[in-house]
Amino acid sequence: MNKKLIGLSVALLVLTVLIGISVGSTKIPVQDVFSILSHKLLGTALSEGIEGKTVSIVWILRFPRVLLALIVGASLAVSGSSIQSVLKNPLASPYTLGVSAGASLGVVICIIFDLYIPYFGYMTLTTVGFLSGLVTVFLVLRFARKVDHGFTNQTIILSGMVLALFVNAVLTMITALSHQDLQRIVLWQMGTFSLKSWKYVYAILPFFVIGTLGTLRYAKELDALSFGEEQALTLGVDVEKVKKRLIIYSAVLTGSAVATSGTIGFVGLVAPHICRRVFGPKHSLLIPMSVIFGGVFMIVMDLIARTVIPPSELPVGAITALIGAPFFSMIFFSRRKK
């Protein structure tokens, strides 16, 4: 039964990608999309009657955009699944530890001062996002340990929230003072995949791969951690080390995602919940499924964002929250009633 579901999920992902590319101001038939992709990726012959312009739309505009939505959604979902189990809290999300606030601040500073790390080129922003996210998490953990020697998850979550609020306030001040870049920053913060080309895909891909594989490597430990840290310790898990690494991988995933497309909420909360309900809480399956459903969710949200009021584009971050909030309440509370 599980194998069938996994097969269906993969099929759903492929279908969503194809539809995501097909729908837009110029509608491109799905079979043409398929033909163009297989021409570009596998070198097969292009179907007759497909214009060069259509190939350009698919390959230069839509495919990288859909791919980017997929990767960002997957990154946030994987990070969410992991952080929820590490903190043993089903309401935690990749943003709980302040990663997104820190990443945002780092990225905004880069935008304002036009900073580029030499040799990193287009990977500057994702790298800065990851590093500043990591610094914030580090501060959150240091602070939590200082105020609470027991280092409980509640303290960690509260410290994360407090620091995130603080960093966000700094961010707002910097934004308000930088008249020139105000529009760019606000647009980026609202979260959008608009006008994102291949170089953004290349910039986030390594972070996504490292973060996801790194998290998946600790699937068994995450299972044990779901029962609490003491339990995990008595089962033989080196909790301190594992927790630290999982939080770093989560910062890798979230920081780079935020740097790419701004702070997009709810994906990291909703996708893990859906996956747990359908596939169970075992992380060896939950993590790969989070990749798929985080991706599907984000592609669909982006599709809605760019087609609902054409020709203007809504910020995808608003759409995820608009749809995510009621959707999440539905799953979360229906489960409680049972």
């Binding site: 043993k88 809290n89 089903p90 299972d223 779901s226 029962f227």
Partner: peptide
């Protein structure tokens, strides 16, 4: 206390 919120 070794309970979990997750449906294992």
């Amino acid at each position: 206390n070794s309970h979990t919120y997750f449906p294992f």
